[in-house]
């Protein structure tokens, strides 16, 4: 994480005395106030974002209750019945699949780049992995529905049901459009985020720690597993939560591969829906104001969840990047 950034406030301190005597000019005061005003605009924008979404959700909150809405299953625009339970479950499960698939891969990549690859390959590999984060989500969605979904339908469903059909998670009805497809596409999308942050964290593990383990006769893997990952664990958890936040809020790619079902079943091969996909799918066609408000209510829940998850992740990563725990190199 690039938390460290130059000398904030240094200029202010440096000039504090001089400004008043040498150049306590109106220009300085005005310029400062202008810059401050724009900074306050950002804060106002952030505040109004939260307020506006809450305000838009008020009719729905009044009708169904904030928590009642989250625990009811029914989503029937025609009869004006709205409950978000199934999409909350869909969001959690698809994000969880994504994290489970992405974490080992992302950590493997981070370890490969920081510890294993020949030095001349590190930069290029990191660069190529990072490119994955630059692809717009609509393109992931298109690729997912045109390539991944048919692949799952044609090549994955049958073997999964044959071998794992005894569990409740793999069964029929099985289409290509599914929780699994959403989980896979989300995993691909969050791998570069997790591995990029984990990489920075792992770079900060002191060489002395690794040498200490090597000198005991440890293999390369033992050094990584017993020293590097434990030392970096707080930051890595932060990186994973950051990836989770991204998966929870991701919209287009999920919308295009999850099937947008009006129900939730524990079958990973069945279609489902997430909070974000429901909003994207229905917002244009929402007929009644209650329907729109219910969708905004979903957005409010989504915003609160991702704010909590994001802040938790930032605090974890930030505490590692600046924190006094553990000795630096």
């Amino acid at each position: 994480m690039t938390v460290e950034s130059g000398q904030p406030g240094l200029w202010r301190r440096f000039t504090a005395g001089a400004r008043n005597q040498v150049s306590g000019s109106a220009g300085d005061v005005i310029f400062r106030l202008v810059a401050l005003a724009f900074t306050l605009i950002i804060l106002a924008l952030a505040g109004s974002l939260v307020f506006t979404v809450w305000d838009g959700a008020r009719p729905s909150i009044g009708e169904f209750g904030f928590f009642g809405f989250m625990s009811t299953e029914e989503w029937n625009p025609v009869f004006g019945e709205f409950g978000a339970r199934h999409i909350i479950l869909g969001t959690l499960v698809s994000s969880l699949i994504a994290v489970i698939l992405a974490v080992p891969v992302a950590l493997g990549i981070a370890l490969f780049i920081t510890e294993l690859a020949p030095p001349s390959l590190r930069g290029p590999v990191a660069f190529i992995i990072d490119i994955l984060a630059a692809i717009p989500s609509i393109v992931y969605g298109l690729w997912g529905m045109m390539v991944l979904v048919p692949f799952i339908a044609g090549n994955l469903n049958d073997p999964l049901i044959d071998y794992l059909g005894w569990t409740p998670f793999f069964g029929r009805p099985a289409f290509g459009l599914s929780l699994l497809a959403a989980g896979i596409i989300l995993a691909i999308m969050i791998v570069p985020i997790i591995s990029a942050v984990a990489r920075e964290i792992i770079y900060s593990v002191p060489a002395a720690q690794k040498e200490g383990m090597l000198a005991l006769g440890a293999t390369r893997w033992e050094v990584m597993w017993k020293v590097v990952l434990p030392y970096a664990r707080v930051g890595i958890v932060g990186a994973i939560i950051l990836g989770l936040a991204r998966a929870i809020g991701e919209t287009m790619a999920v919308t295009m591969v999850i099937g947008n079902a009006g129900y939730f079943v524990a079958n990973l091969l069945a279609p489902s829906a997430t909070m974000a996909s429901l909003i994207a799918n229905e917002f244009r066609e929402a007929g009644t104001s209650l329907h729109v408000s219910a969708l905004i209510h979903v957005g409010l829940v989504l915003m609160i969840v991702s704010l909590i998850v994001n802040i938790a992740a930032r605090l974890l990563v930030w505490s590692v990047a600046t924190g006094p725990s553990g000795d630096r190199r």
């Binding site: 974002l49 506006t52 838009g56 809020g249 957005g299 915003m303 991702s306 994001n310 802040i311």
Partner: peptide
């Protein structure tokens, strides 16, 4: 600012809509 960057873009869409 960083927290704002973490708000899902679909929620930003709702903000602009309302």
């Amino acid at each position: 600012v960083e927290t704002m960057a973490g708000v899902p873009s679909i929620v930003v869409g709702i903000f602009a809509y309302v």
